[in-house]
Design a protein around this nucleic acid. Structure first.
Lengths: 290, 290
DNA sequence: TCGCACCGGTGCAATATTGCACCAATGGAT
DNA sequence: ATCCATTGGTGCAATATTGCACCGGTGCGA
């Protein structure tokens, strides 16, 4: 193989099964993938992928190349982590992945304070509800609420966050019972069972949305009721819990990093800091801040 | 690393220590290496190579990338051999490396006959006195006279070839003793000790040359005397051994391939054929053909 | 049957990359 | 001191590669 980057092409095509899917994985145009595949197979003794109605599938020879490509990817990813693990002081780049809600409502000030404390650490925040892949260095540290973190990651399991049912102060007084509405969440793990446990389980849902920040603003605007994280709602003077609402236990909060990075000083510094900041707000997070 | 081919760049620069040396290894222009290195280090958190008076040397971070690159090279080479090992019939490509002398004087007809016997085998001959690197698929099969073959290659050790001292028929009669000359060989393993064992050890050397074929023609042209392989000289009716000349034992002839290829049918077919062809000419090769 | 989303393929222009030619610097041999 | 071979660096032209826009085909859902 004259260009080892062709192994990335092979991997992407194997994983996606299509030119366009591979293009997406590689961050290039699908016509580029088409041409590179043609050139690759022209220079090879045999074809590596056959084109079925269901998509591209590796031939026997291609499957061996896929296996080799997987090995290479592992080496490349390990090498990248080794590069990122370099550094013997509190300086250098760190990429932190965390849910938008935690970034905006829980740790916004703490993150800024950290950057002031450690001006030589270049912190990049990736707000996402997806679980960043630390193997491929999509992030160095990840904060996530989950019941089942990847087992090879290391770090701390803190405590579960609490949720409860809220509305804008005065909403119930000002809204006839038949006009009361729920603001829903479009996440599959947040099915309607949360509504059943609420004081107004019969009220219909006004609309659902994937953006928790938008829902928070809708709540603040008095558009309806919602079950939301206590650390988002309790700090708001204009939001109150619905009468009789209990806190519900969400998933555990974890602060995790890759084993290859756990000994890097600046990583340890940020991990320690984040855990400290979250623990300092334990009462709020557990819904006991009122 | 966005382009895994950068690992090849890293390897080449590490191995050569210079931009021009790396360029040679990679088959590109040195300005290309310079620019790719600059781009690579610009996109990396740290520099990978420092520029000393003695050349480029990997930094600590760079050494880790070199190690990763070496691992990747091994995978790439194994993958390439796997591709070359494919095939369940006597068809497909084979690259055979052998000394020029063996190609021109010993197996010329046999190789053509093989191609006629197996028209679906695409045979490529690389005539070279260097030892082709079968790890990097420079060849699939290698024929070589050597006392110490690479231990991981597999194949057959045949028998040593013989050499003796020759001149053109009539040379001694037509050349006054003080005008007789030797035709030398510019190979380090063929020092002047061969002249000491000759019937005319005091005669000076006319000139030396690296090209054994050229020396053969010079011998045929009556330009001097030479120690040459019996399989080259004995078949020539115009060449005779010097009076009193004995045969000298050269190195063992080996026919070798890479372990990854040894089970591939077409490889086995050619290995078997070549060994058979060489064994059929054993008398000639051992100088017993007269 | 129709519309839509996705697919692979390709001409052309845009962009990136490379080679060439040249330069100055360096170090070693004479 | 001089010459030569090798080095790294760079402007510019040549070449390769890529993205864009578009096309026709396919399959699925309504």
């Amino acid at each position: 193989m004259d260009d080892w980057d062709d192994y990335r092409l092979i991997l992407a095509l194997h994983r996606s099964g299509s030119l366009r899917g591979a293009a997406k994985l590689l961050g290039v145009n699908h016509s580029t993938v088409s041409r590179r595949l043609a050139a690759l197979q022209a220079g090879s003794a045999g074809i590596l992928f056959e084109q079925l109605a269901s998509g591209y599938r590796p031939t026997e020879a291609g499957a061996k190349m896929v296996s080799a490509a997987e090995d290479m990817e592992e080496i490349a990813q390990r090498a990248e982590r080794q590069q990122r693990a370099a550094g013997s002081a509190d300086k250098g780049p760190i990429t932190l992945s965390l849910p938008e809600a935690i970034g905006q409502f829980l740790l916004l000030n703490e993150i800024a304070a950290f950057c002031k404390l450690y001006p030589d650490i270049d912190l990049t925040i990736i707000s996402s509800y997806g679980f960043a892949n630390l193997d491929r260095s999509e992030a160095d540290i990840v904060i996530r609420g989950t019941g089942k973190p990847p087992e090879h990651l290391v770090g701390r399991r803190l405590f579960p966050y609490a949720l409860s049912h809220y509305c804008r102060r005065g909403y119930l007084d000002e809204t006839p019972p038949d006009a009361r509405r729920w603001l829903g969440t479009a996440y599959s793990w947040s099915r309607d069972e949360w509504k059943a446990a609420s004081p107004f389980s019969a009220a219909p849902t006004l609309y659902t949305m994937s953006d928790l920040t938008m829902r928070h603003k809708a709540l603040l605007a008095g558009q309806g009721m919602a079950r939301t994280a206590c650390y988002m709602a309790d700090p708001e003077p204009d939001l109150v819990r619905l009468p009789g609402a209990k806190t519900v236990q969400g998933q555990d909060l974890w602060v995790l990093t890759h084993p290859d990075l756990k000994d890097t000083p600046r990583i340890k510094t940020l991990m320690r800091y984040l855990c400290g900041a979250i623990i300092a707000k334990r009462a709020l997070i557990e819904g006991n801040h009122i």
